[in-house]
Simulated assay, not measured.
Amino acid sequence: MKRREFIAIAGGAAAGWPLAARAQQPGRVYRVGWLSIGSREQTIHIIKPFEEGLRSLGYRVGENVVIEYRFADGEMDRVPALAAELVRLGVDVITTGSNANTLTVMRLTTTIPIVMTNSVDPVGVGLVSSLARPGRNVTGFAQDTGGELNDKRLELLKEALPNLLRVGILWNPDFTPNRNRLTSMNKPAQAMGLTLVPAEVLGLDTLEPAFATMVRERAQAFVVLSEPLLANYRGQIAAMAVRDRLPAISTTREYAEAGLLLTYGANLPDQFRRSAAFIDKIFKGAKPADLPVEQPTKFELVVNLKTAKALSLTVPPTLLGRADEVIE
């Protein structure tokens, strides 16, 4: 195999060169911008597979690729300044993770390629024109592009709790896709004989009132409509769920590892590992507008038996048998 073209830390002026021309320069070191709402500690589980994905394609971090990491440490108001810093550095591509990060970077540049690694409903919120033809400087991965996954989570919660009638929905109304998510859950909930109890969370100080709402409205369990804000609070959410004796389900294994009873969704480490392929194609001259947005191919069900024990619940054997991972 021929030696790869390299990606780079220096030479800010070169950021203005046409990408295809830069990709043809052997020995060049490129810079990848990484923009995260969370902290390094909260995202290390996805940083490692991302770097492994690059390594599998011939890129060596610190040698022919340098990653400019920027972490907002859960403070969303820091994101615009961090994004602007990456743009000023003239990085060759920016990975953005969430919708909010992607929108922030899109406002700052129409030329630097953006790889969104974990977007929600990117067409609906205007990140791309279509999944097949993004049409801008943005491509990458989408999850929860429809309501099927949240329907499945309701089904799993009902299977774990056969007498379930009232389900809390912990959600952030400021996250645009959540309104469609909540609306789409009504019909399947009714078909399952479930009444939904929405509880809004706008920040850490609103978690307690949200749980008070679910308890007051006699919710027997709840679903977390995950997005970056609530993902940052997953530890607190899990602790409150056990305290109030409320079984819960959310999207990714990180919530189960934090202490929620169940999670079902995309395998994020796998998704971040695969996102390296988008960067590789862009470095070889591909335009983000022409790279179709991909959806997860690997989903996993995780059951936390420690939490089940704390809640005095017996998880049905049928559910345990289908679990990809059981935390004991």
Rank of each mutant, 00 (worst) to 15 (best):
N118E: 03
R107Y: 00
G53W: 00
V87I: 08
G62L: 15
L54E: 12
L82M: 09
E75Y: 11
E51W: 10
M106G: 04
T104F: 06
V93F: 05
N101F: 09
L57K: 07
E52M: 05
S98Q: 06
E75A: 13
V79C: 07
H45C: 08
E75D: 14
E51A: 01
I44S: 14
T96S: 14
T95G: 01
V79N: 08
V61H: 06
V115F: 01
E52I: 08
A83G: 04
E52Y: 03
I94K: 12
R78W: 03
G74L: 07
M106C: 00
A81D: 03
T96F: 02
L82E: 12
D77L: 13
V93P: 01
R60E: 15
G97L: 13
R107P: 00
I37Y: 05
G62Y: 11
T102D: 08
R60W: 10
E51I: 00
V87M: 09
E52K: 11
G58S: 03
T109N: 01
E85V: 10
F71K: 04
T104E: 03
R60P: 06
N99L: 14
E85G: 14
P49M: 07
L86S: 07
L82F: 06
E85R: 15
L108G: 03
E51V: 02
N118P: 00
E41T: 01
G74V: 01
G62Q: 13
A84I: 08
F71C: 05
G90Y: 01
P49D: 07
E41D: 04
L54T: 11
V66H: 06
I67H: 08
V91G: 03
R70L: 06
T96Q: 11
E51P: 02
V79F: 03
M106A: 07
N64T: 10
T96I: 05
G90P: 02
I114T: 01
A72K: 12
N99K: 12
V115P: 08
M106V: 06
P113N: 12
E51T: 06
I94S: 07
P49T: 10
K48P: 01
K48Q: 15
S98G: 08
G62H: 14
D73G: 08
S98F: 04
Y69G: 09
I46H: 04
I47H: 15
G97F: 10
E63P: 02
N64P: 03
E85S: 15
G62F: 14
V66N: 00
T104R: 02
A84G: 13
S39F: 02
I112W: 01
Y59C: 14
E51F: 02
V115W: 05
L54Q: 14
V115Y: 07
V61F: 06
K48V: 14
T109Y: 07
L54M: 15
R70M: 12
T109I: 03
L57D: 13
E41G: 00
L54V: 07
M106I: 04
D92N: 13
A84L: 12
L89W: 02
S39E: 09
P80Y: 10
H45T: 08
R60L: 13
V66C: 01
I47Q: 15
R70W: 02
L89D: 00
R88T: 12
P113I: 08
S56I: 05
L86F: 09
L89V: 00
D73S: 14
I114F: 04
M106N: 03
T102L: 01
N118G: 12
G74R: 05
I44M: 11
R107E: 03
V91I: 04
G97N: 12
V93E: 05
L103W: 15
A100S: 11
T95Y: 00
G53P: 04
V115D: 04
